[in-house]
Write a protein that binds this DNA or RNA. Structure first.
Lengths: 179, 179
DNA sequence: CCCTGACATGTCAGATCTGACATGTCAATG
DNA sequence: CATTGACATGTCAGATCTGACATGTCAGGG
C-alpha cells in the first residue's frame, strides 16, 4: 500500500488535484521510487477520502477536486515513515539488467557496459543542470525541500551507475580474452 | 515481463531448479532489482518451457526439475539486454521514503535521516565483508561474475544512501530552527 | 467561431503479483 | 524408528496494476 503513502506525502507538500498528482508522480517519483498511472491514482484518492485520510478542500473549474491531507492522514504518513522498512518488493529494470550483465559473453558485455556508462553520465550531467536551475530559482537562505533533495539523489544515483559500469569495465580489462 | 528475463539470466549462469531459483532471487535480486516468490516462479517456468525458451535438462530426486536455457532463450535474453531501456515501473519503498522525507517537520526529519544514515552504513559495512569473503573464495586471477558484480553494486548503493542522508543532515544544519 | 491541445476525471478487462494453503520427499538427529 | 526441518512443487483467491477506452471542459490561435 505504498501508493497511498506516496500520495499522502505529495499532498502534505502541496494541496492539489488528481491530474497534478499524476504529473508529479511521473516527474519526480516515477524514475527511482514508485510509479502509478492516473487510472490507479483516482480510485485510490476516493478510497483515501472514504478512509478519512484526505478530503476535498476545493473544487476548481472543469470538475477538478483539490485534495488536502486530514490530521488522520498526517498521522498515518508519519506512522508509516517511522515504521520499520517494509518488505515492499523492489522493482527496477535497469538494475536487473546490470545484475544480468554477466550472462553475456565478453564482447557483448563490454559494449553494453560502455553504453550504460555513457548513458548514465549524460543523465547525471543533465540532472546537475536541473539542480543548478533549482538553486537559481530558490531565494538564497531559503530551505529547499523535495525537488532539491530528490534531484540530488537522482544525480548521485546516475553517478553510481556510471562509476559502477566503469568499474566493471576495469575488471574486464584485467580478464584474459580467453573464454 | 521482466520476470521472464530475470529467470533466463539466472539460468544462463547456472542450470537449476525452481527452488534454487527462488532462493537466488531472494538473495541477489530481491534487494535492488526485482522480486518474485515461488508462486510466481513455478508457473512462469512452465510457460517459458511451453514457449521453448527453457527446457528440463535433468530430473533430480524429490521430483525436482533442473532447467536449462535453449538457444531460443539465449537469443531472447540477448535481445532484451540490448533493447532500449523499457518503461518497466520502478518500485522501491526505501527511496520513496527518502523522497517523502521533506513531508516531515524538522525534528522528525533529523531523527529519520540519522537513522537512515546509520542503517545504510551498517549495511555497507556488512556487504564489504561479504565481498572480502567472495574474493577470498575466488582463486586468484579467476574471473568473477555475478555475485561479485552484484555485491559491489550493493555496497555502492548503501554508501550512496548513507552519504545522501548525511548530505541532507548537513543541509538541515544550515537551516534556521524556525518553522 | 472552430479547432487543437492541455486540463481533468473516470471505468474496466486482462495481466501480474502476493500470501496462504496444500502436498509430498529425503536426510539427519535423537 | 519417529520427528524435525530443509528440499521441492504446486494451486488459488484476492489485491494490485496496466493500458485502453470513454467523456467532457476550457484557453488560445487561426
Amino acid at each position: 500500500m505504498s501508493l497511498r503513502h506516496a500520495l499522502l506525502g505529495l499532498l502534505v507538500d502541496t494541496e492539489q488535484n488528481g491530474y497534478d498528482l499524476t504529473r508529479r508522480f511521473e516527474q519526480t517519483l516515477s524514475g527511482h521510487a514508485w510509479s502509478a498511472g492516473h487510472s490507479q491514482i483516482y480510485p485510490e484518492l476516493k478510497r483515501m477520502t472514504a478512509d478519512g485520510l484526505i478530503e476535498v478542500v476545493d473544487e476548481g473549474s472543469r470538475g477538478s477536486k483539490v485534495y488536502g491531507v486530514t490530521p488522520a492522514g498526517r498521522d498515518e504518513l508519519r506512522r508509516w515513515m517511522f515504521s520499520p522498512p517494509g518488505e515492499a518488493p523492489a522493482r527496477n529494470e535497469f538494475v536487473l539488467r546490470l545484475f544480468l550483465l554477466s550472462s553475456l559473453d565478453l564482447p557483448d558485455l563490454r559494449v553494453l557496459a560502455e553504453r550504460m556508462a555513457r548513458t548514465s553520465d549524460e543523465q547525471a550531467t543533465e540532472l546537475a543542470g536541473t539542480i543548478k536551475e533549482i538553486e537559481a530559482a530558490t531565494p538564497a537562505g531559503q530551505p529547499h525541500g523535495y525537488a532539491r533533495f530528490a534531484a540530488e539523489f537522482g544525480r548521485r544515483w546516475f553517478e553510481l551507475q556510471r562509476d559502477w559500469a566503469r568499474w566493471v569495465l576495469g575488471e574486464l580489462d584485467d580478464r584474459p580474452e580467453a573464454d
